[in-house]
């Protein structure tokens, strides 16, 4: 193989390598834009922000609307009450008590 051929091959290799690096850089930037954002660090609670975070974590009135229904917390006493009143029962049941951790 002549020297000129070797030089052409070397240049071709360098060009290929450069194109590869550019492509990888573009891919990396694209992934950085499209990838899910990393979670922020948890805030430090203190006297200034504590009440704001308390309100944030606690459910709002809308989120607690289920409590406006007025739920007894055990079926059998409710059945006895219904029998005494002669009224039907609406039972809401979940794994984990609905008024607790579900």
């Amino acid at each position: 193989m002549g020297v000129d051929s070797i030089r052409r091959i070397d240049r071709a290799d360098r060009d290929a390598a450069r194109r590869y690096r550019v492509a990888m850089l573009a891919l990396t930037l694209a992934l950085a834009v499209l990838a899910p954002q990393q979670p922020t660090t948890a805030p430090h609670p203190d006297a200034d922000n504590f009440r704001e975070w308390l309100t944030f974590v606690q459910p709002s009135t809308d989120e607690e609307a289920y409590r406006t229904i007025g739920w007894r917390n055990a079926l059998w006493p409710a059945v006895q009450e219904a029998q005494q009143l002669g009224r039907p029962i609406l039972l809401w049941t979940m794994n984990g008590h609905p008024l607790g951790c579900t």
Binding site: I69, R72, N73, H97
Partner: peptide, 26 residues
């Protein structure tokens, strides 16, 4: 979503409403 609905709240008042844990009931 369900319990905040005004009509659901109104109708529920016709019942003895109770919440209980499914896994303990059955």
């Amino acid at each position: 979503m369900v319990w905040s609905d005004a009509r659901v709240q109104q109708l529920s008042r016709e019942f003895v409403t109770v919440a209980d844990e499914a896994y303990m009931l059955y």
